[in-house]
């Protein structure tokens, strides 16, 4: 493992029953690097990033995040989760709590931050995602794009070193995708280490340092965006790109 890698996956294997969902996956991510993962559905890209904060367990190989190896050790898992923020396709906001409470909950209960300080932090995060006026509403009263931005703010409030995005715009109406991507671009420009699973190739071209293409549980191709889009090596990648870019 190189010294500056903040995330390192080595020969990671995982099965769902008999289905071999991750096959010898190797991935090194450096600090402040922005990785975009793409691939057809069922290719294991979501499973891979969910292994990084242990929402899924890998069965073989090793995953090291910020110097902490992910094993059955619960304390390690908690420590990794404090370092890694995650944004989901379905937002997964807590519907019984207001927007502000959604954001302050983890700082107050996990980081033991005083309530006033946490609320101040929440308002700052809402400014960053550009919806401070929604602080006292409930998730059900917001549009999808607003909900996803709250979800990003909620993750950022824990001050993570790494952000994982699992198809953050796939559940959104087309006109809301841009407002979420804008926030993610700002975040990328701010120097956050990011792994983004997405089919938004425009976003990938703008921010990605590296593209990762997965198919059938394997990483088929890893390349700079320039090379990936203009001169991909594998035929599988070419086929995928032709399908996704010329719909």
């Amino acid at each position: 493992m190189s010294e500056e890698s903040i995330i390192s996956l080595k020969n990671v294997n995982k099965w769902f029953g008999d289905f071999h969902v991750l096959q010898d996956v190797n991935l090194e991510v450096k600090k402040k690097e922005r990785i975009v993962v793409c691939g057809p559905s069922g290719s294991g890209k979501s499973t891979m990033i969910r292994c990084i904060n242990r929402l899924e367990e890998h069965q073989e190989g090793s995953i090291v995040v910020d110097g902490i190896e992910l094993t059955g050790n619960l304390k390690n898992i908690d420590n990794v989760r404090k370092e890694v923020g995650m944004v989901f396709q379905q937002f997964n906001l807590f519907p019984h709590l207001s927007v502000k409470e959604n954001i302050t909950l983890a700082p107050i209960w996990v980081k033991k931050m005083p309530k006033a300080e946490a609320e101040e932090l929440a308002m700052r995060q809402l400014e960053i995602v550009k919806i401070p006026e929604q602080a006292n509403k409930y998730p059900g009263q917001l549009s999808g794009g607003q909900q996803q931005r709250v979800a990003i703010a909620r993750s950022l409030a824990m001050n993570p070193n790494i952000m994982l995005f699992d198809e953050p715009t796939s559940a959104l109406d087309p006109e809301m995708i841009k407002e979420v991507l804008d926030v993610m671009v700002d975040l990328a420009n701010g120097g956050m280490t990011m792994i983004v699973v997405t089919h938004e190739m425009g976003f990938a071209k703008t921010v990605a340092d590296r593209m990762v293409f997965m198919d059938e549980g394997k990483i088929v191709e890893e390349a700079s965006p320039d090379k990936f889009f203009n001169n991909p090596e594998s035929d599988r990648t070419k086929l995928f790109l032709s399908q996704i870019l010329h719909q």
Partner: peptide, 18 residues
């Protein structure tokens, strides 16, 4: 309760009881 609620809580570093 949808599984996403558990995942969101876990990804924020919450323990089982919290």
């Amino acid at each position: 309760i949808p599984p996403g609620q558990y995942e969101a809580a876990k990804s924020l570093g919450m323990s089982y009881w919290r």
